[in-house]
């Protein structure tokens, strides 16, 4: 390995700090869309740790599933539940911020 173990220790420490900060943010954030984004951050940090643990298969699965599909499922459900709040966006697209009940149906 060309990378020294000292460097890997720092990378693991950085990934751990990001993951734990994201996990605490999931519990404390008021906005649910931001909480879903924090969950994706935790999954990406875990994916980085899986690469360092010499498991590329698992890292690929965690990145595709945790950051991709799981985030899409959660965000879609939040839209259906009416918890999709985009602050300050008055754009004329379908994600209007003033929907309080379900979706545009």
């Amino acid at each position: 390995m060309t990378v020294g173990t000292e460097f890997l220790d720092w990378v693991v420490l950085l990934a751990t700090v990001i993951m734990l900060a994201g996990a605490v943010a999931v519990l404390l954030l008021k906005d649910y869309l931001a909480a879903v984004a924090a969950t994706s951050v935790v999954s990406l940090g875990a994916s980085l740790l899986f690469v360092i643990l010499r498991a590329p298969d698992v890292a690929l699965t965690e990145a595709a599933v945790g950051a991709g599909l799981s985030g899409v499922i959660m965000a879609l459900s939040l839209r259906r539940l009416g918890l999709w709040r985009i602050r300050g966006s008055g754009a004329a697209d379908s994600s209007a911020p003033d929907e309080r009940t379900g979706d545009a149906d």
Partner: peptide, 19 residues
């Protein structure tokens, strides 16, 4: 120097489970 990789990884895993 950063703490040993094993210690940090265990803290990460148990921390996530705890949170």
């Amino acid at each position: 120097s950063a703490p040993d990789m094993g210690v940090t990884l265990f803290i990460a895993a148990f921390g996530l489970v705890g949170i």
